[in-house]
Amino acid sequence: MEKGLINSIKLYGDFFSESDVIELENVLTGIRYNEKNVRDVLKNISIEKYMSNINEDNLIQVMFN
């Protein structure tokens, strides 16, 4: 975090994906770190493409709880 923005983010775990999770990390980098802004970005992205069996709500929960 830097000045309220996501300066860098690393998503990892033992999940399978069809696309490299780095693409998702890049999309999240540079946006304001609050739930509304993250949800706004994620609503146009298929999370399951990057993390199998994970949805937007799951990712939000991990990031903000």
Rank of each mutant, 00 (worst) to 15 (best):
M1R: 03
M1L: 10
M1H: 07
E2P: 01
E2K: 07
K3Q: 10
K3Y: 08
K3C: 00
G4I: 04
L5G: 00
L5N: 04
L5K: 12
I6L: 04
I6Y: 05
N7Q: 13
N7T: 09
S8Y: 08
I9C: 09
I9Y: 06
I9Q: 03
I9E: 02
K10P: 01
K10L: 15
L11V: 12
Y12S: 15
G13A: 06
G13H: 07
D14W: 10
F15P: 01
F15Y: 15
F15K: 03
F16K: 05
S17Y: 15
S17P: 02
S17E: 11
S19M: 13
D20R: 08
D20Q: 12
D20P: 09
V21G: 07
V21M: 04
I22C: 03
I22F: 13
E23G: 13
L24F: 12
L24C: 09
L24G: 09
L24M: 05
E25P: 04
E25G: 03
V27D: 13
V27M: 15
T29S: 08
G30T: 08
I31A: 08
I31G: 07
R32Y: 11
R32A: 15
Y33V: 00
Y33W: 11
Y33E: 05
N34M: 08
E35N: 06
K36T: 12
N37V: 09
N37R: 08
V38I: 14
V38K: 01
R39E: 14
R39W: 00
R39T: 07
R39I: 04
D40P: 00
V41W: 02
V41Y: 03
V41T: 13
L42A: 05
L42M: 05
L42C: 09
L42I: 03
K43T: 09
K43Q: 14
K43M: 10
I45D: 06
I45C: 04
I45Y: 08
S46Y: 09
S46H: 07
S46E: 14
S46W: 03
S46L: 03
I47C: 02
I47T: 00
I47A: 02
E48W: 10
E48A: 13
K49V: 10
K49G: 11
K49H: 13
Y50T: 06
Y50E: 07
Y50N: 02
M51L: 15
S52L: 06
N53D: 14
N53S: 13
N53E: 14
N53P: 00
N55Y: 10
N55C: 09
E56Y: 01
D57W: 08
D57F: 04
D57G: 02
N58W: 12
N58P: 00
N58I: 08
L59Y: 12
L59H: 05
L59W: 08
L59N: 05
L59F: 12
Q61V: 00
V62Q: 12
V62H: 04
V62W: 07
V62T: 05
M63G: 03
M63C: 02
M63R: 06
M63T: 03
F64N: 04
F64W: 05
N65L: 10
N65S: 13
